[in-house]
Design a binder for these strands. Structure first.
Length: 738
DNA sequence: AGCACGCCGACT
DNA sequence: GTCGGCGTGCTC
């Protein structure tokens, strides 16, 4: 006799955090109160148990009844993820061809993923006592850290939460304790939120373009629409964001603000806190698990009105989301480069669509994709043409260094320019996209070059630490005293790095203050902030550094910007390189001339006639972008076609090609027309960290065709015989080669 | 991802 | 004879 109980029992379809491209069916608990999709469950799986998420409830299962096991327990009375959140995660799983269970588990903070109770730990808030408010902080001058904390409290009206204090300084607890003992501080129960008033002040007066942008987005609150807020540095994008946020908050809705990097959160957070009296949550990877979980639950519950975060914050569930802002939308950091390789920009747009919420993408140098979407009328273009206030745009110049005598890479004209600028008490900013002392160490005697043992790359000379380092695998070794090959030849460091330029500048300008900003000099916690404060205080004459200079920071006193080696980006096998270089030049240029003085940008080049550079200088970024889009169209490259890149690496030299040849067979068998298969070929860096790397590129003018093909082959990849020896990754819409 | 099962080399 | 190497196959 058949088991009637099983015929009538409901089936739970559950997503589990395993790399398997399907859901798992379980028998629903018979007598528990009804639950809906989005709750977490504990279920038996293999030998042990796992925490999963209920995706759907069904009458029937395709799995034989004998295999079905019952759910162990239901963890949440209410779904943590709403239907629209699940729909978004489902979309991500399908579009990026990444297992749904893994996508979903990545959306949860660690604690919730492991099945911990979904209760936000009640945070303590601290506020000044009357005594503390009246206290002269000088009385604490013997305890300078306590004095700092007291002054922090005195500088603002609201209470401070544990999270805010932790962001301020890691050891805040040891400072709060004595201040409480001295009755200067007290624990308060609730944050001092100022009733119905969302904004602390009305904001700045906007120019016509800003106001037009604000009106356009405000008119779309409650419906899906994508806006490209396209404004040069200093055109007042942030003020537009703030006024949009104010409008959305007044309607009782929440706002998601995404930035590309953690270093950009503190300044924006501070501006938001000054402007808005609502609770603000911050989420990025430098927070502890508890802090992130607290932020996540506060947003999910509706206790916080603004979430400011990096791409990992994108999947946080909102109670009532009303607006998504994604700043610096062109930035490659929005593309996740491991695990599920999603584009936060593109997923933000999908999220807006699912929730009927406007999405604002902001940039001074919009991505070609977004400009193309403007051309298609999928996005609405909001142009902010002027710099707000009196600031003038910087003047860009090329400095032809062919046949010029260079001193450590700096031409004499350039040195003279720097000298003139610092003599006027103005700041100079030098950009070099390479850290360390020199990228090559060569033996003059025998031609030996210091190569990484595990990568196809040269080792970089680091002078301060007296080491050779591989920037790709992190391997490090002491600087050899003489050539390891011929023992007699003289070792010479070739090429430029930030350390070398710093040394040169120190020699040329011994009485000037020079600050180097790169990953090596800013490793210490708070180091970057210290340097930035020194720079803004005018205590620095010359700033030199890498990429990190190009992002967000304002250097109001800089009037000369130098890009030392613009040529390295001109000739690349990756078709994205031109776009990235143009964005970099414009972004770095944006650091100059923010005050009343006009800024100048000097780029040293050996290719002064290169069309990229001349177009950019003569006609600006948008003209360059049009040219580049025309070239992409001609070559049928994205956004005029769509790419998926299959990257493979293995310790065994032959395994990647064996795997990719097996993939070719699958592709042939799938027989999907309209998809071009390019490769397999060795990756640009054919060996990295001891692994051999190859890639296969799929290209199609029709996105549908490409995805049909991927739907077919991706679930089969792990079952291929050579798959056990390799690790593969699939990158849909790649922005970097493998 | 885990974790079993399974079939071949160096040890008590 | 056994302990254990990691190849491969499954998990509702």
């Amino acid at each position: 006799m058949p088991d009637l109980a099983h015929d009538t029992a409901l089936i739970f379809r559950v997503a589990l955090p395993v790399p398997i491209y399907r859901l798992f069916d379980y028998l629903a608990p018979a007598h528990d109160p009804p639950v809906s999709a989005g709750v977490r469950l504990e279920v038996p799986f293999g030998k042990g148990t796992k925490i999963g998420v209920l995706m759907a409830i069904d009458q029937h299962s395709d799995v034989s009844a004998a295999k079905l096991k019952p759910v162990i327990r239901i963890l949440d009375a209410q779904p943590l993820l709403a239907a629209t959140d699940l729909a978004l995660l489902r979309w991500v799983s399908r579009y990026y061809h990444y297992p749904l269970g893994k996508v979903i588990s990545a959306a949860f903070p660690a604690g919730l993923r492991q099945g911990k109770a979904a209760v936000a730990r009640g945070e303590n808030y601290y506020a000044l006592t009357d005594e503390g408010e009246a206290m002269d902080s000088q009385q604490l001058k013997n305890a300078p850290q306590q004095k700092n904390l007291l002054e922090k409290f005195q500088a603002q009206t609201a209470a401070l939460s544990e999270t805010e204090l932790a962001l301020w300084q890691g050891n805040w607890r040891t400072l709060v304790k004595p201040l409480i003992a001295k009755r200067l501080l007290a624990t308060v129960t609730a944050p001092a939120a100022a009733g119905r008033a969302f904004s602390n002040n009305a904001g700045l007066v906007c120019n016509a373009a800003q106001q037009a942008a604000i009106d356009a987005v405000t008119g779309s609150v409650g419906e899906f629409k994508v806006f490209l807020l396209d404004g040069v540095t200093g055109s007042g994008k942030t003020e537009v964001y703030m006024q949009l946020i104010a409008t959305v908050l007044e309607r009782g809705l929440q706002v998601l603000v995404l930035v590309p990097e953690i270093t950009l959160t503190p300044q924006l957070e501070q501006r938001f806190r000054q402007r808005f009296s609502v609770n603000i949550a911050v989420s990025h990877s430098k927070l502890t698990d508890t802090q992130r979980q607290t932020a996540w639950l506060h947003i999910q519950h509706g206790d916080c009105a603004i979430l400011l975060g990096t791409r990992s914050a994108l999947f946080t569930p909102f109670k009532k989301l009303g607006l998504i802002i994604l700043d610096e939308e062109h930035d490659a950091s929005f593309k996740q480069q491991d695990g599920c390789r999603f584009s936060a920009r593109d997923v933000a747009v999908v999220r807006g669509k699912l929730l009927d919420v406007p999405v604002v993408l902001g940039s001074a140098t919009p991505s070609l994709e977004s400009l193309y979407n403007v051309e298609n009328r999928r996005y609405q273009h909001l142009l902010l043409p002027e710099r707000a206030g009196t600031a003038l745009p910087p003047v860009l110049q090329l400095l032809d260094i062919r046949n010029k005598r260079l001193q450590e890479g700096l031409s004499e004209l350039l040195v003279a320019d720097i000298k003139r600028t610092v003599a006027k008490q103005e700041q100079v900013l030098l950009f070099i996209n390479r850290r360390g002392f020199a990228p090559t160490l060569i033996c003059h005697g025998c031609g030996w070059v210091a190569r990484c043992q595990r990568c196809d790359a040269n080792l970089v000379v680091h002078h301060h630490q007296r080491t050779l380092r591989c920037h790709h695998c992190g391997q490090e070794q002491p600087l050899p005293p003489h050539c390891p090959a011929c023992k007699t030849g003289q070792l010479t460091a070739l090429g430029l790095g930030t350390e070398r330029v710093e040394q040169l500048l120190n020699g040329l300008f011994p009485d000037k203050a020079i600050v180097r900003l790169d990953r090596d000099s800013t490793q210490r916690k708070g180091a970057l902030e210290d340097y930035l404060a020194q720079i803004n205080a005018g205590a620095v004459d010359i700033i030199l550094g890498t990429q990190m200079l190009a992002k967000g920071h304002h250097f109001a006193k800089v009037t000369l910007v130098v890009i030392l080696d613009v040529d390295s980006g001109l000739f690349s096998i990756d078709f994205h390189a031109a776009e990235k270089l143009a964005q970099l030049i414009v972004q770095v240029s944006g650091r100059a001339g923010r005050a009343e003085k006009i800024g100048k940008v000097v780029m040293q080049t050996r290719h002064p006639d290169h069309p990229l550079l001349t177009a950019l200088i003569a006609d600006g970024y948008h003209h360059f972008a049009q040219m580049e889009l025309a070239q992409r169209k001609e070559a049928l490259l994205p956004p005029f076609s769509h790419h998926a890149l299959l990257g493979v690496q293995a310790a065994d030299e032959d395994a990647p090609m064996q795997f990719l040849n097996a993939v070719l067979v699958l592709l042939e068998r799938a027989n999907v027309p309209d998809v071009a298969v390019l490769g397999p070929v060795a990756a640009p860096m054919a060996r990295r960290a001891g692994l051999y790397r190859y890639q296969l590129l799929l290209q199609s003018a029709q996105r549908q065709a490409l995805h049909r093909l991927l739907d077919n082959i991706v679930p089969q990849l792990d079952a291929l015989k050579p798959a056990s020896k390799v690790r593969w990754t699939l990158d849909v819409d790649p922005v970097d080669l493998f």
